[in-house]
Design a protein around this nucleic acid. Structure first.
Lengths: 359, 359
DNA sequence: TGAGTGGACTAATGCGCTTGAGTACCTAGA
DNA sequence: TCTAGGTACTCAAGCGCATTAGTCCACTCA
């Protein structure tokens, strides 16, 4: 027995029908803009509905065959990893802009891992809760596309690479490979030959793509002291890896971080070891956020329109919901914005100076 | 006509009834644990249901009087202000932990302002979308409690101060006043007499409470060079205010920032003006996050368990949904964690040294 | 033997909405 | 005058579930 404070009762179509002196069906026709009622009646019904503050009950509507008017988004990341970077809230903001227009709700859930995520999809599907979902953090060897196919749940994969095996899924993606190539190109032009890429979570599709591209680009230029190290995206691991690689005999002269948080943690760690940025080591953040302009030196970063990314994804999903075909759309390649943390490489072998002695 | 890929059909109670050889009512009784069926039948029905992967349709359930099994959360902040601080995603993580257990969905929406937020509540109410809502960022002179009373929508206010005028609302709050008193006390003990509080958005209840407490505490100690300045929480304004107050003839020796982002922007701005932290000016961040340990000097911060805060709030809401009474519960007072950004005040009047000349 | 009792189950209704199948009325054409 | 074809509606069924009011069948006790 739910808490009740005897509030205003919600008006139903029956109320409107009574007040307008027509049948419920007429009200339905009038309100849904379908033929079968005269313009006068339609107007009258509309006015009564508005006056009563009526809104269709999504439950009832759904029960009679329409959708749930809701889309789902589940992110599978531990809580602490989630909070730090600004990506998700930005993305969600963009998604909302589009959904709000169409009066679609967003069902949001955070879970621990992909298995749990699949469980959520199953439940949502069985409970008729959502009409479609947005999938983030696509992985190599990802179980979700197959599942969504099986359930017949319309979905758009955000940040995935186009995948011919799942023609039912839309994909919205940015060309990370192209961006990585540009980064390597620019660092190379600045004279950098030893580059370390502090990557994100190993299973993620875009992580793997960046790693692969880095290797390809390095090989193409004959660089052998170029590599990637995966992390969990946290500031702690970002700092730890930074300390480790800078302590090597021939430390890298450029560091590329897969998010803003690690980049910041990295410059701080580098500074503690006596490495000046960008004099001794250049730093690039893959994510551009307010953070990058809040520290000195300002961080050079790959900038993309995350809000727009979310908007685009939501548009694709609504198109799918309207019965449109699955599509693959590409958003603009992230642009490298050079600020203060990148510069020419030193010719000589850099040696840590100052306080911190590398262990 | 929605996109269909002729997927698996969702099983209904009718399917179960057929397979188990009983009526739909028996299935309902069996599955909802109410009397009217034998234990053998109940078991059999349960087994069939599980085997079929059945889950109750929330829509149908709702239509027959139960709730929507969903709670709502709307945050009214512009997208760019939202992304930066980690508070919301942490809060949501906590909320989810509790909701997931009870199979409650979270309908999430971000809007521009409180008016829009009220509109969302009205719509959700009329559409039967949610059973209750969580209200964040309570304000002085807030229209939302009245509205929620009027709609009879169970709600818990997160971070509000207990309000006797709305006995229907639960409140989960932290004692910001006590925390501010502690901060002032500690700064006073360190010898600080000129303190500026770089506050958040002016309309917010906790902003006003902190400002009021700061003034009270200052008066109690006879300090007249203590004041608050409100901002929009952005790094830009945080930096701007910092620059402005440090350029004064008798600049403050301690700065208290209402979030981590502004605190970070503040120390950077201070450094550019030649102020060393904490030698020339002490800095405290009201929000403790990874950020605070990612910069040198590490930021002293008021730490609270944001995830736990969200958990607590969700628990109160579910209690309300279960028909419990509205309550006011307090979470632990934020604790001041002193790191490297706070220290004793200089006796002498500090003067900017070094590069930056204040304009 | 018949009335009474309680346990196990079925039938029927309603929630708010959509929708296909009518129905009543009007006009036009043969 | 009768029919064909609209138009503007109304009726009734059904979506998946909960729930109230039965129904049927032992079984007990007088």
């Amino acid at each position: 027995m739910p808490a009740k404070r005897s509030p205003a009762r919600r008006p139903t179509m029956k109320d409107i029908a009574r007040r307008a002196g027509v049948s419920e069906s007429a009200v339905s026709f009038a309100l849904n803009g379908r033929p079968g009622v005269s313009e006068v009646t339609r107007d009258r019904v509309r006015r009564v509905a508005e006056q009563l503050g009526w809104r269709p009950s999504t439950a009832a509507r759904q029960l009679s065959g329409e959708g749930a008017a809701t889309v789902g988004l589940v992110v599978a990341r531990p809580a602490d990893t989630l909070g730090v970077d600004s990506f998700f809230l930005q993305l969600i903001s963009g998604i909302q802009e589009v959904l709000a227009e169409r009066h679609l709700g967003l069902l949001f859930q955070v879970v621990e891992d992909v298995d749990a995520e699949c469980g959520v999809y199953r439940r949502w599907w069985a409970e008729h809760r959502v009409d479609g979902v947005m999938v983030v953090d696509p992985r190599t060897d990802d179980p979700r596309p197959d599942l969504l196919d099986e359930l017949g749940l319309p979905a758009v994969v955000i940040g995935g690479v186009p995948d011919a095996r799942h023609p039912g899924l839309s994909t919205v993606w940015a060309d990370d490979a192209g961006a990585m190539a540009a980064v390597v190109g620019q660092l190379y032009a600045l004279g950098h030959r030893r580059i370390v890429h502090i990557a994100g979570l190993p299973g993620l599709a875009h992580t793997e793509r960046r790693i692969r591209t880095l290797r390809t680009e390095a090989e193409r230029r004959g660089l052998c002291e170029v590599r990637s190290v995966t992390t969990d995206y946290s500031d702690a691991e970002g700092a730890a890896v930074t300390r480790r690689v800078l302590a090597e005999d021939a430390p890298p002269t450029a560091l590329v971080y897969d998010n803003d948080v690690m980049a910041l943690a990295g410059v701080t760690a580098a500074a503690e070891l006596g490495f000046a940025v960008p004099a001794d080591v250049s730093v690039i953040s893959w994510e551009d956020s307010a953070l990058c302009r809040m520290v000195k030196p300002w961080l050079s970063a790959l900038s993309r329109d995350t809000v727009g990314f979310g908007r685009k994804a939501a548009e694709e999903l609504t198109a799918l919901l309207d019965g449109g075909p699955a599509r693959t759309v590409q958003v603009p390649v992230p642009r490298l914005i050079e600020r203060e943390s990148t510069g020419a490489a030193l010719d000589s072998q850099p040696r840590p100076r100052g306080s911190g002695s590398a262990g």
